[in-house]
């Protein structure tokens, strides 16, 4: 498995940040979206609760193209952020939207050594990230990384 700025092996017992966001398929990690039965509008994540009945769950492609991006340079406020709770040790991270052609555009954290190499249109693939939290150890979330 793939971690923040490095590698984390799958032997660690880590819990997903939320259920139903992603799964490991033969093609690699894919995101789980919902397609509204009435008009085909797609959204990520697949809605939960009463709204879920109006959607069909579907897998997104394992790869897409970078649609836009930025770098989060300051530590987001807590709540809601549960990552690093120390301004001094906080490390900026890239975040962006990836377009899965013909499907939907999804926002996610980006795993990249040098954000200056990011460019709109860059091929990106879905990955998993071990996200260190200040409250419950590492959790696994989805992220994007350049192909």
């Amino acid at each position: 498995m793939v971690g923040a700025g490095g590698k984390v092996e799958g032997s660690v017992m880590s819990i997903a940040v939320a259920d139903g966001l992603f799964l490991e398929s033969a093609d690699g990690i894919v995101l789980m979206a919902g397609r509204r039965k009435a008009d085909g509008e797609m959204r990520f994540p697949m809605p939960k609760g009463p709204e879920a009945a109006l959607y069909d769950a579907m897998r997104l492609a394992p790869e897409g193209k970078l649609w836009s991006y930025t770098v989060q340079r300051f530590r987001p406020k807590t709540p809601p952020y549960i990552g690093d709770d120390d301004d001094k040790s906080f490390k900026p991270f890239a975040v962006g939207y990836v377009e899965f052609p013909g499907q939907v555009i999804v926002e996610g954290r980006i795993l990249v050594d040098d954000p200056a190499t990011l460019k709109i249109g860059l091929p990106m693939k879905v990955a998993l990230e071990a996200f260190p939290t200040s409250t419950r150890g590492d959790v696994i979330t989805y992220a994007f990384r350049p192909v």
């Binding site: 940040v17 809601p80 990552g83 975040v95 962006g96 939207y97 926002e107 996610g108 954290r109």
Partner: peptide
């Protein structure tokens, strides 16, 4: 999880809208 993982910031949105 959207806020917990650091994506719920207006600053990010504005940056990504103008970047594109």
């Amino acid at each position: 999880w959207y806020g917990e993982t650091g994506m719920m910031l207006t600053t990010q949105f504005f940056a990504m809208k103008i970047r594109r």
